[in-house]
């Protein structure tokens, strides 16, 4: 399961998607919307995605992870649109025979996703909007 979605992410469905008889561990990462950036209150976040390329890059990251760790199954779902504080922006689940690989693979996937997948977020503050990371 590799997807960009506009509605709320069904975390349980993402976890269920990686269940495998050979798995001794399922590691789940949930990226959520934080209520502040450098002590400044955030009201909401808008996520935008280049859907076709984002899905392709997420699939490539999943394939790279599967080359490095004995992954049984992997699922990555990223949300786009307007999200409120506390909502999940991304859910990643990885199943492996033993737990260490599941932690490592999950961390690799979220770290790489942040660097290469074409998704952008705009933080909305009381006094205006800012595209995150756009400027040095």
């Amino acid at each position: 399961m590799i997807a960009i979605t506009e509605g709320p992410i069904n975390t349980q469905a993402v976890i269920d998607a990686v269940q495998a008889d050979g798995a001794g561990a399922i590691n789940v990462f949930i990226g959520t919307v934080r209520n502040q950036t450098q002590a400044k209150p955030v009201i909401q976040l808008d996520f935008e995605a280049y859907d076709s390329m984002a899905v392709k890059k997420m699939q490539e990251i999943a394939n790279q992870a599967a080359e490095r760790w004995p992954i049984q199954k992997v699922a990555i779902v990223h949300r786009k649109g307007t999200l409120q504080i506390g909502e999940a922006a991304v859910v990643i689940a990885v199943s492996t025979p033993h737990r260490k690989a599941s932690f490592e693979a999950c961390e690799y996937i979220i770290d790489t996703l942040k660097q290469v997948v074409p998704i952008w977020k705009k933080e909305k503050f009381e006094d205006g909007d800012v595209w995150v990371a756009a400027h040095p």
Binding site: S52, L113, Q115, P118, W120, V132, A133
Partner: peptide
Amino acid sequence: IAVNDDYATPEQTLSAHDEIALIPPVCGG
């Protein structure tokens, strides 16, 4: 620049049929 859903190299030549996108700093997650 992305061409046909992949990041392009600076020397990559373009054609009118390419699907081209401008990619500012990404920050998913």
